[in-house]
């Protein structure tokens, strides 16, 4: 952590970046995002097990962007998000410095995107262990039981769209749900419309979700909506042998065609 603070200070003092995106402790001790522009305040930065939020979501927000060039405290999911955002042309590798942190809290030396890619490639890219276990349980259910499970879960959704706001890959300036000509997704929340919203969100993230789990954590009513996108990440890996966010030149599996593609993916 001291290394992190020292490095952050150095970057700000030497004006290499204008802002550090990291974590600080809030009044109740909960970790919250910090946007540090003043080197003197770099001491506020923390990194420990409380710091779970995927900070990459801020990379595309104009308010943060307007602060100038940034350095970001990056766990594995953040790094994978950065890769996705670069490959989808939302951010440019030159505009960002990655302050990589390993799972034990030590500062990694991520000099550039190539180093980051190498780090990602040697990491475990599957879904988080506890989500994996949940998915195994869900997949044991029959189709009907599973449908009933999701119907029940999703009927609780209040369409606050916190899951969307928290996801680094839901960066659209206008989401489909905000389109009313035609109204694809009903505004009010009801079981049917909620299902539509979640199917849409899952499909928009299929092959793009980097399994950070942020959407599920953000949900105020406790819907495990991250399991939907994580299951799709599994499917995509099964069929196409790729994990999202592993290269800066990734072509989206669901929007590319290779002449030798097998058709068995039509399920």
């Amino acid at each position: 952590m001291n290394n992190l603070i020292a490095r952050a200070k150095e970057l700000l003092e030497n004006k290499i970046v204008q802002v550090i995106v990291g974590y600080e402790a809030g009044p109740t001790g909960v970790a919250r995002p910090a946007f540090i522009t003043n080197p003197a305040k770099a001491d506020l930065l923390i990194y420990d097990e409380r710091c779970v939020q995927n900070l990459a979501v801020y990379l595309t927000k104009p308010e943060v962007r307007n602060l100038g060039k940034m350095a970001i405290v990056a766990t594995l999911p953040v790094m994978r998000s950065i890769m996705m955002l670069i490959s989808e042309q939302q951010i440019f590798a030159d505009n960002i410095i990655v302050l990589g942190v390993s799972s034990d809290g030590s500062l990694l030396d991520i000099a550039d995107i190539k180093v980051m890619q190498a780090y990602i490639e040697k990491s475990d890219l599957g879904n988080p262990v506890k989500d994996r276990a949940l998915l195994v349980e869900l997949n044991k259910l029959s189709k009907e039981e599973r449908f009933a499970y999701w119907q029940k879960e999703l009927s609780k959704c209040i369409k606050c769209y916190a899951c969307r706001q928290a996801c680094p890959l839901c960066y659209c300036t206008r989401c489909t749900v905000e389109v009313n000509q035609p109204q694809w997704i009903p505004v009010q929340s009801n079981t049917h419309g909620n299902m539509e919203w979640h199917i849409l969100r899952a499909m928009h993230l299929a092959g793009r979700c980097i399994s950070c789990g942020e959407c599920g954590r953000a949900c105020p009513v406790g819907i495990p909506c991250h399991l939907l996108t994580m299951q799709l990440a599994d499917e995509v890996h099964n069929y196409f042998k790729v994990y999202a966010g592993t290269s800066e030149k990734m072509s989206s599996v669901l929007s590319t065609f290779e002449p030798n593609d097998k058709e068995s993916f039509i399920i």
Binding site: E88, Q89, Q90, Y171, C172, S252, S255, T256
Partner: peptide, 15 residues
């Protein structure tokens, strides 16, 4: 400042 609701992901380009 919007210019378009397009976010320039260019996933459309590949399809």
């Amino acid at each position: 400042p919007m210019y378009s609701t397009c976010v320039g992901c260019f996933l459309c380009q590949s399809v």
